[in-house]
Design a protein around this nucleic acid. Structure first.
Lengths: 233, 233
DNA sequence: GTTGACAGATTGTCTGCGAATCTGACAAAG
DNA sequence: CTTTGTCAGATTCGCAGACAATCTGTCAAC
């Protein structure tokens, strides 16, 4: 019967709670660098700045803690997570593995629709790479990774990758800031989409891994020289 | 200077907070089946049964929620997570991928010490498989997976696998309950340890994947027939 | 049988409070 | 001058109580 489009009526049951909004706010604040790695996050400050009670703040912090975005020590409170060079390396290693998996599965089982979406995502990123709108660059690239993860059809891999991406944006070592890296990056992800569209799992996996490994090299180099982590003061 | 063994003096900074103890309790309660999938977890009940205030309960629940052990809907409260057959399938797919990664990396970079630990873990599991102490069986097998994950030397993979294992124990579809599966299981993990000890990454990875895929077959079959999930009533 | 209203249960959130704990400063002792 | 001891301030930890918002089932009315 007329239930073909029924699910579109769903009201966003989510976001109804204050806590989840606080959570999103804090996540964005951390990602955007408002709070820097190593910096303390003091309950009462957050209460005032966000305008909610301690309950909501504390519960939101527990979630971020579980996600690895903040670390908290008993009786000292939470601080924004920071990473050693070795941890950054490991982060990229596992990310390469997981995105490689996505590429492979996508090429194997991806729907025609998902593939079209992926290609559009690459095109959008390409266009953004021509201009110099940093905002658009990040957004289109994030979208590409979202589509890539989605296409693999595995909710757990999506969750894990989201978690990894959050920690990477926190690092603020965008490999795209490296001169000459941007066009190369475009080429790489186009290779990925082409391999997936062609339905070649091994090539897609290899392309994904290659892409992340290249990004990792730049990121680790930056992490070593910059040393903007810690943020002791 | 005499700092060679200094770190052993560290006091367990952890576990100082009530919240973390509540968290562990609940995790265990869920894993042991005290709370079944689909069952509601009512704050005040938990307060009484555990003997702590609502604050601690709620914050612990937020962590478990982030781990995927419980799901909560606004104004309805948290329920123990339950999984569709498709989700179980996906769970094992990604688990195979991650443990395969562990096997490969372990074989590549594992220390002599870690390898010895791994072999001891296999022996312990083998011995447990001879007896019929269900408790020991689970414990030794869990230990084996811990050592395997540890040996890969990647903290993120360890985290992710822990998360997956937690959800699987919640499922209570121990593939070991299948008649004949146990000795086969022992053989499989011995193959893993042998490949790692021999330093053969590809073979180790394949053995890991094979092992999980076999377990998955049994688990999914059980999940389909049993249907003890949902627990609507 | 459908609709509507109502009551009970439960969660979401805020607030005040006291205890426990960490931290840095400052004085006392060597 | 360095080490040690003490103390006060800041902050988290956890509890209890309160109230609004929301969900759920029931039961009467149509």
């Amino acid at each position: 019967m007329g239930d073909s489009k029924a699910q579109n009526l769903q009201i966003p049951r989510r976001s109804a709670t204050l806590r989840s909004m606080v959570e999103d706010n804090l996540r964005k604040a951390i990602a955007s660098g408002t709070f820097k790695p190593g910096q303390r996050m003091i309950e009462r400050d957050l209460c005032e700045r966000i305008g909610v009670g301690r309950t909501s703040i504390r519960e939101a912090l527990r979630q971020l803690e579980a996600e690895g975005l903040v670390v908290s020590y008993p009786h000292k409170g939470p601080v924004v997570a920071s990473f050693s060079a070795e941890e950054v390396r490991q982060l990229y290693v596992i990310r390469a593995e997981l995105e490689g998996f996505c590429g492979r599965e996508f090429a194997r089982h991806g729907s025609r629709e998902d593939i079209a979406k992926l290609i559009r995502a690459v095109d959008a990123f390409d266009r953004a790479a021509q201009g110099d709108d940093q905002e658009a660059l990040i957004e289109t690239k994030t979208h590409f990774y979202d589509v890539l993860a989605q296409g693999a059809g595995n909710i757990y891999v999506t969750q894990f990758l989201t978690s990894l991406h959050n920690r990477i944006t926190l690092l603020r070592v965008s490999s795209m800031r490296q001169p000459g890296r941007l066009p190369e990056s475009v080429r790489e992800i186009r290779l990925i989409s082409e391999a997936i569209a062609a339905g070649e799992p091994e090539r897609a996996e290899a392309a994904c891994k290659q892409h992340i490994e290249n990004a990792a090299r730049v990121a680790i180099a930056q992490a070593l020289t910059g040393q903007s982590n810690d943020a002791e003061e």
